[in-house]
Structure formats: C-alpha cells, structure tokens
Computed example of a mutant assay.
Amino acid sequence: MSLNASIRFAPLTLPALLLAVLAMGAVVLGSNVLVQYPINDWLTWGAFSYPVAFLVSNLINRRFGPRAARQVAWVGFAIAVLLSIWIATPRIAVASCTAFIVAQLLDITVFDRLRTGSWWRAPMVATTCSATVDTAIFWSIAFAGSTLPWVTWALGDLAVKLAIGVCLLAPFRALLWKMAPARS
C-alpha cells in the first residue's frame, strides 16, 4: 500500500481541466514572450511570471491528484509548443517546452511524495527542485553559445523564481482549504 493510498482525489471535470490548461498555457506563453525582454544583466521579465505554473500544478495535484496534474501538464505542454513556435523564437520555444515538461513532471512527482507532511513542505520543495531544473534546462538550451549574459540571467531568474515560490505559499495556503482532497 502506498503512502498516499488513503487519499481520495476529486474527479477532474472538463471545466476544471479547461481552466487549469488555460492557466498553464497563459503562464507559459506569457513567460516565453517576457523572457525575451531583459531588465538588466541578471534578470528578464519572464522570471516573474513562470513560477505561477508551479502554483497551478501544485493546486491541481493537491485537489485532483498526480494523474490529473500530469494530464494538465501534458495538455499545457502541447498548447505551449504550438503557441510558442508561433510567438517565440524557435530556440526559445524548444528550450521552454523541454524545460517545462521536465520541470512539471518533476514538480508533480516531488509534490505527491511529500503531500502528507506539513502544508508548506510539498509545494516549497517541489517548486525549489523543479525551478532549479527548469532554469538549468531552459537557459542552457535557449542561450548557450550566444554572446548574451545568459549565465547571469539564469542565476537572476532562479533567484526570483525561488523568491516568488516562497511568496506563492500564501495563495497556496489560502486556497488549501478548498483544494484539499478527502480522506478515506
């Protein structure tokens, strides 16, 4: 019997799926556009929007379970691929889509393994791990070999993602009462 076997998740309804996919797609698409606009030598605007993808994933995972969260990640991934190729540069689209799916699947797995601990532990650890992996994959694919200051952008991006991840614990906690699964 698994650690989370006593948890009953709500069924993922079509409206909930559509809302989650829309939210995920908007975050990824917006971040793909914003990452192309540097603020300075160590940060781009994309760092501020992308951590919301982990909040969406964690809320879906909390209420509907890891299977539903993976479903949202894969559908969001497909939409992100199509829209990113159209709106972002090809290299950013490939980097973003690769980083997104790897980081989201990691986030879902880590969150699920830690879900029964303190309310803050699963989202914080999952976001920290997945933001780090996402940053490493995205920046190395998107800008490696360019003359842009991508390493400092990556470090600034990661610092902001982690800081925003901490800040997003407040809305996660506020929504937790509504998103918590039932116990058997």
Rank of each mutant, 00 (worst) to 15 (best):
M1L: 12
M1T: 14
M1S: 14
S2R: 13
L3W: 06
A5M: 06
S6L: 12
R8N: 13
F9P: 03
T13Q: 04
P15E: 05
L19K: 11
A20S: 14
L22C: 13
V27D: 00
V27L: 01
G30N: 03
G30V: 03
G30I: 06
S31Y: 03
S31V: 01
N32M: 00
V33I: 15
L34S: 13
Y37H: 15
Y37T: 14
P38Q: 09
I39F: 09
I39M: 13
L43E: 05
W45K: 02
G46T: 08
Y50G: 00
P51G: 10
V52W: 00
F54D: 04
L55E: 05
L55T: 07
V56G: 10
L59E: 07
I60D: 10
I60K: 07
N61L: 08
N61C: 14
R63T: 01
R63C: 02
F64K: 02
F64Y: 14
F64P: 00
F64C: 02
P66D: 15
P66E: 15
A69F: 08
R70I: 05
Q71A: 13
V72D: 02
V72N: 06
A73P: 01
G76H: 07
G76Y: 08
F77Q: 05
F77D: 01
A80F: 04
A80D: 10
V81K: 06
L82T: 13
L82W: 08
L82K: 06
L83R: 06
S84D: 14
I87C: 10
T89R: 13
P90T: 11
V94Y: 08
A95W: 00
A95S: 01
C97Y: 01
T98M: 09
A99D: 08
I101V: 14
V102M: 02
A103I: 02
A103D: 03
Q104D: 11
L106E: 12
L106Y: 05
L106I: 15
D107N: 15
T109N: 10
T109V: 11
F111C: 10
D112M: 04
D112I: 07
R113W: 09
R115L: 10
T116L: 15
G117Q: 13
G117H: 14
W119G: 01
W119A: 07
W120V: 13
W120R: 08
W120P: 07
W120T: 11
R121A: 15
A122D: 02
A122N: 04
P123K: 05
M124P: 00
M124K: 00
V125H: 11
V125R: 08
T127I: 10
T128G: 12
T128Q: 06
C129Q: 02
A131K: 08
T132D: 10
T132Y: 09
T135L: 06
T135A: 10
W139K: 01
A142H: 04
A142F: 04
F143V: 01
A144H: 11
A144R: 09
G145H: 04
L148E: 15
P149F: 07
P149K: 06
W150N: 02
V151P: 00
T152P: 02
A154R: 06
L155N: 11
G156Q: 03
A159Q: 05
V160F: 03
L162T: 01
I164T: 08
I164R: 03
G165K: 06
P171S: 15
P171T: 15
R173Y: 12
R173D: 07
W177F: 11
A180M: 08
A180W: 01
A182L: 13
A182C: 07
R183E: 14
